[in-house]
Design a protein around this nucleic acid. Structure first.
Lengths: 165, 165
DNA sequence: GAATGTTATGTTATATTATAATAGTATCGT
DNA sequence: ACGATACTATTATAATATAACATAACATTC
């Protein structure tokens, strides 16, 4: 069912990241058009900046970049755009880092798990059905209704492990 | 193997919470004595305050309470105690709430998952081997070394669901 | 195409959470 | 009692996030 555009792994070191960005923006535009949402210049730019790489980005980093570009921006400027992007599944929030990262399959209601390298900062988004079902099972046992899942695994990715043993 | 003192569920509404607190403090004292750690008055009091109920507590809330008790305290006072308690597994941090909650089985190296009710604020700590192994499996596939897990499920607990349908 | 409603953004101020840096105090082992 | 170590106090500030309100852009309907 869920055909993820990005594979369930860490992005290769040598991948052409412009492709990622372009794809993400195209998807976002397609999605917003389809849903009747307004992907304004600001929101589009924030999304693009979040997608600058595969590392979660902090709100104030984004703010700084917007300011440097000459745009008048204050914290709410950024947070509101982030809220919009979050609400429509175009980005995810990484709670443990107070940061935001692009989502590779907007619209799709999915429960994401993040593996985050503490060395290079890159994050991989997974959607592991086993984890999902285990949580669902626990919830059922507890009589608990799940609203939001925060599943963030920090550690060291394969590349960084090999680089500095 | 792991014999948890608190069951893997939400605490009953009518349980005698002083028992929880007393037990937690006793366990902490036992553990610190055994490990040669110093559970100072401040640390003990912070632990007690964290255990005041089964809801995660914010650092500044603790600070306020300490201040009201006449103790001279500033943010670092609290955060250092919290760091100590965290480091030795006497409390857990709930990242998604920026808050802290008592741990019912200190010392035991366990991967905790939290189910947090957005209505009453209570949190239940689980240690589900299925979730654990699923994550381990993903990590293996990615060549990822796990350091820290943040697994926090927000929603509505059974009691709150029944109370306000 | 002006009036009106709606959504998005700008602006100011401030709340909330967390840490850096340094000095002082208690505690422990000898 | 003494020196080493671990803990705490104090001040200042960093980093993250939101409240409250004003203005601007856009879109509809008349």
């Amino acid at each position: 069912m869920s055909s993820l555009k990005q594979p369930e792994q860490f992005p290769a070191a040598d991948h052409d990241h412009r492709t990622c960005i372009n794809h993400a923006l195209q998807e976002a535009e397609r999605y917003c058009l389809q849903q009747g949402l307004r992907l304004t210049a600001l929101r589009r730019r924030v999304l693009e900046l979040v997608w600058a790489n595969h590392q979660p980005v902090g709100a104030y980093h984004l703010l700084e970049q917007l300011t440097h570009e000459g745009r008048k921006a204050a914290p709410p400027t950024v947070y509101r755009s982030l809220d919009f992007l979050l609400e429509h599944g175009l980005i995810h929030r990484i709670t443990s880092l107070n940061a935001f990262v692009g989502c590779n399959h907007p619209g799709l209601d999915h429960a994401a798990q993040f593996f985050i390298c503490e060395d290079c900062g890159q994050a991989a988004e997974l959607d592991d059905a086993k984890i999902e079902s285990a949580i669902a099972q626990d919830a059922k046992r507890l009589g608990f209704t799940v609203e939001k899942r925060t599943i963030e695994i920090a550690g060291t990715c394969a590349r960084c492990k090999h680089r500095s043993p």
